[in-house]
Design a protein around this nucleic acid. Structure first.
Lengths: 182, 182
DNA sequence: GACCACATGTAAGGAGTTACATGATTAA
DNA sequence: TTAATCATGTAACTCCTTACATGTGGTC
């Protein structure tokens, strides 16, 4: 039930944001660590308002509703941050397939690992290019930790790519005679 | 919809397994990359049987049903493995909290990062100890890739711990004057 | 006036969790 | 005979996704 807390944190940070505004943040920056769809978001905003954790602080054109966090909401946010333990969500489709590598032909298995290595390398390149463009320093309150998560993304992808390279080698060593890369 | 494929892969590997057998595998080895509950598992076994991807190949005491994969199931498993792209599930509660670090007091923020660092260090130690005990080499068909995923776990946790140490330093540098570790 | 961006919602269905419910076999 | 393990299932509920549905305000 963390979408609740993602919204709470975002509204705390961006006082007066609308559902539409929040949605854009999910699409751009927050989406890398917690994704949500539009319908989920509006539903949760309703529940948070009902529960008194946020409130409609202003209304604008086109039915726009601007939200602010309430004291109760701020208390809940802090409670979540410092008094509850995050439970890792153990579900990784990429790794799951590795588990079943022996169920397909060797060329399929090697092909899978090669595709993963290529995809990770590509995304690492994209990130490096993106990093040069993004205007750091001029942090408008929100981007301070965006920088931390971008660094995380880089380390994560590099770790995975290196691991896949290692795993591929292990796979080949266990079955000598299989032709190497295409 | 990957629980379906996790079961398919497992049944391909362990011909004649029952729901109960599969559940134990989820609890022990597979659970680190794909978790599932008992009720979900039995439900999915029913759907897979209906869909003709697996079949009840034998029945035993206590209503035990042993499953085998069908040719259709094997085709679906291969299709999934080599012809579909795994989509990363972007949801990480640990990272989500980092996003909102500026919404709590500095001592709470540092406390959070310290707890994460400690937890990761502890789990790394556990893994190292476990690795010495586990009997490698005598692989009974299943454990070959268990070794790969264990190495992944090690690298993953080490990467996260190192990143948290770095992130903590970044946090402190941005707000000088905050007292260091307890 | 047409179009794009803004803006909010509902409906239906699938995936996942927690709790409940039941019973058979085996070994001490 | 008692307890542990084996063994399967259902019910209720929440979470999440996809698709549909509708309308307003600003700007060219």
């Amino acid at each position: 039930m963390s979408l609740r807390h993602a919204l709470l944190g975002l509204i705390a940070e961006m006082d007066g944001a609308s559902g539409y505004d929040l949605m854009k943040v999910f699409e751009i920056s927050l989406g890398t660590v917690w994704q949500a769809t539009q319908s989920q978001l509006y539903g949760e905003l309703g529940k948070l308002t009902e529960g008194g954790l946020i409130e409609v602080s202003a209304e604008g054109p086109r039915g726009r509703k601007e939200y602010s966090i309430t004291p109760a909401g701020r208390a809940e946010l802090r409670h979540w941050m410092v008094e509850t333990d995050p439970k890792p969500h153990r579900r990784d489709e990429v790794l799951l397939r590795v588990f079943f590598l022996d169920q397909v032909a060797p060329e399929d298995a090697l092909g899978y690992m090669d595709r993963m290595i290529d995809a990770l390398s590509g995304r690492l390149d994209d990130l490096a290019r993106l990093e040069e463009i993004v205007p750091w320093e001029e942090e408008g309150g929100l981007t301070g930790n965006g920088r931390l998560t971008m660094e995380y993304g880089k380390r994560f992808m590099a770790m995975r790519r290196d691991w896949f390279v290692w795993a591929r080698k292990q796979y080949e060593e266990r079955r000598p005679g299989t032709a190497s890369e295409a």
